[in-house]
Computed example of a mutant assay.
Amino acid sequence: MTLPTLFIPHGGGPCFFMDPNGGPPDPMWRPMQAYLAGLIDSLPERPKAILLVSGHWEEDHVTVHTGNGQLLLFDYHGFPEHTYRLRWDAPGSPEVAARAKTLLEGVGFPVGEEHARGWDHGVFIPMMVAVPGADIPLVQLSLRKDLDPAAHIAIGKALAPLRDEGVLIVGSGMSFHNLRARGPQVTPVADEWDAVLVDAVTDPDPARRAERVAAWDKLPHAHFAHPREEHLLPLMVALGAGGEGPAVAEYRDHVMGWAVSGFRFG
């Protein structure tokens, strides 16, 4: 069974867990929470492991996390004290990490290894919703600091064999990420950006799709939507790993005045 690949929104900080008594999040975040909560059941089979690329980890070379049983890296600021005591105790998978490293090196990418860094909130916040039992091993993969879109699509292509090995490849970011632009006045431009992004990402021709998404910064409103593109680059990895299969925009909603989309490939 070949698993699809996903690009998911990870929300804002600990947005799904702001109630210390475990109540539901702000209504604005509930559709996104519901989408994330249904991800695993939507797959053709339960993955044996997850390989996740977060918009919150960059290294000079693409780097695999080889640790097992990571602490969490609370890389958000200004939230209630209890949100710095969240737990998500899934195991790592050094075996999947080694396999990813081999695949990437096989096509010429230098690959670093890391074993001590905690999982950042681009990992544990969406995964606490998607895998609340913390019972699927997870390996985190970094972005490259150069944020080269074509290179990240190629990284995804190199990792595609993992899909036939029971590994779910996930890009975790946000399709719109401009923290200085929030509120209803942003929505018309955010909607226009989302429409052109979705059109490029879901192009039925896989080669043309990759070309259009690699040239994301030529799309209307690109640099307004992403003053810096680290939250968009996980999409490139998911798209590259998705191969020749279809691309579908399977989630869309508005948060903070932003139009936010999620995608499935393959």
Rank of each mutant, 00 (worst) to 15 (best):
M1F: 12
P4Q: 03
T5Y: 03
L6M: 04
F7E: 06
G11I: 14
P14N: 11
F16E: 02
F17W: 01
M18I: 15
D19Q: 14
D19P: 11
P24C: 12
P24S: 13
Q33S: 06
A34D: 14
Y35E: 00
A37D: 03
I40P: 08
L43H: 06
P44E: 03
P47G: 06
A49D: 01
I50C: 02
I50Y: 08
L52C: 02
S54F: 11
W57A: 00
E58H: 04
E59D: 04
D60W: 03
D60F: 09
V62R: 07
V64L: 09
H65L: 09
N68D: 15
Q70R: 03
L71M: 12
D75M: 02
Y76M: 09
G78L: 15
F79H: 04
P80G: 11
Y84C: 10
L86A: 02
R87L: 15
A90I: 01
A97S: 07
A98Q: 14
R99G: 08
R99W: 08
T102D: 12
L103E: 06
G106D: 09
V107E: 01
V107Q: 05
G108L: 07
G112V: 13
G112N: 03
E113P: 10
E113S: 15
A116F: 08
G118P: 09
D120K: 02
D120G: 10
H121D: 12
G122N: 15
V123P: 12
P126W: 04
M127W: 01
M128F: 00
A130L: 11
P132R: 12
G133Y: 00
G133P: 11
A134N: 07
D135N: 10
P137W: 02
V139P: 05
L141I: 09
D148E: 11
D148L: 08
D148S: 11
A154D: 10
A154L: 12
I155L: 10
I155M: 01
A158D: 10
L159Y: 07
P161D: 13
P161V: 15
L168C: 07
G171A: 07
H177L: 02
L179M: 06
L179V: 12
A181I: 09
G183L: 02
P188N: 14
A190D: 11
D191G: 00
D191P: 05
D191Y: 00
D191K: 11
D191S: 11
D191E: 15
W193S: 02
D194H: 06
A195F: 08
L197D: 04
L197G: 04
P204I: 15
P206M: 14
A207T: 15
R208G: 08
R208W: 04
R209W: 07
A215K: 00
W216V: 02
D217F: 02
A222C: 06
H226K: 05
P227R: 11
R228P: 00
R228W: 13
E230C: 06
L232C: 10
P234A: 07
V237A: 03
A238E: 06
A241Q: 07
G243H: 04
G245S: 07
A247P: 13
A249I: 09
Y251H: 01
V255I: 08
M256H: 01
M256G: 06
G262S: 10
F263R: 03
F263Y: 12
R264F: 01
G266F: 07
